Computed example of a mutant assay.
Amino acid sequence: MRILTEEIADDFFFVHTSLVHGALRKCGVLRSNQNYDDLVQIGLLTLVKVYEQFPEDLCEEEYFYQFTGFAFQKIRWAIIDELRKYQLKKEREETVSEFFDDEADPDRDKNEDWIVWQLFPSMLDCLAPNEQVYLKESVLNQLSVTDIARKHKVSRKTVYQWKNRTALKLNHFKAVLTN
């Protein structure tokens, strides 16, 4: 295993940083993306890991090109993994409570949160048992669809079905709160 030393780091990054930006472009990540700088850092860290793990001597031209292809793919995968994590985090934050989101109605009084929680038992009453499970797990326990599926030993597709049916049934509560 080789180590990227300070003596060669500047030259190494000058030559290979374009792999990171190319992988970001390939993944459709623009500079305007709020996570762009974080993704660049992840790409650079992955580039260093690949350099340290690559078994051949990069001074030989044949291996240099093999390294660039190998590094590009590894960087791309790392970026895709991170994008999936961002998406999962976004999913986790989106719960049924989005119906009652303050940003959706900036004029909404903060005291209405109390009303929402007073209506929660009524919301549960109008749902089927599996839909109640979804509502409790997503709102009270803040679990993602994947976590709910694992916990209750069902597929993610099933949990999405619970979520969609719950949203449809709770639309009338949203109408009550917005009037």
Rank of each mutant, 00 (worst) to 15 (best):
D57I: 04
D57N: 10
L58E: 02
L58S: 03
E61H: 13
E62T: 13
E62P: 05
E62I: 12
Y63H: 13
Y63E: 10
F64G: 08
Y65D: 12
Q66F: 08
F67A: 01
F67M: 05
T68F: 01
G69L: 08
F70L: 05
F70H: 13
F70Y: 14
A71Y: 00
A71M: 00
A71L: 00
A71N: 00
F72V: 02
F72Q: 01
F72S: 01
Q73M: 08
Q73W: 06
Q73F: 05
Q73V: 06
R76D: 03
W77Q: 11
W77D: 10
W77R: 09
I80W: 01
I80N: 01
I80M: 04
D81T: 12
D81K: 10
E82L: 07
L83A: 01
L83W: 02
R84E: 12
R84H: 13
R84M: 11
K85G: 14
Y86K: 05
Q87M: 08
L88Q: 11
K89G: 07
E91V: 06
R92M: 09
R92C: 05
R92N: 09
R92D: 05
R92H: 12
E93S: 13
E93A: 12
E94S: 05
T95G: 12
V96G: 03
E98Q: 14
E98R: 11
F99A: 10
F99P: 01
F99V: 07
F99E: 06
D101W: 13
D102N: 11
D102H: 15
E103G: 07
E103C: 06
A104H: 10
A104Y: 10
A104E: 12
D105Q: 13
P106Q: 04
D107G: 12
R108K: 07
R108E: 04
R108T: 04
D109R: 06
K110R: 14
K110D: 13
K110L: 15
N111Q: 12
N111S: 10
D113R: 10
D113L: 06
D113G: 09
W114K: 15
W114Y: 11
W114M: 14
I115G: 06
I115D: 11
W117T: 07
W117F: 15
W117A: 07
Q118V: 13
Q118N: 08
L119M: 14
L119I: 09
F120D: 01
P121G: 07
P121Q: 04
M123I: 02
M123H: 00
M123V: 02
D125S: 15
C126Y: 07
L127V: 06
A128R: 15
A128S: 14
P129D: 06
P129N: 06
N130I: 09
E131Y: 04
E131W: 02
Y134D: 01
Y134Q: 03
Y134T: 02
K136S: 15
E137K: 13
S138Q: 05
S138Y: 03
S138W: 02
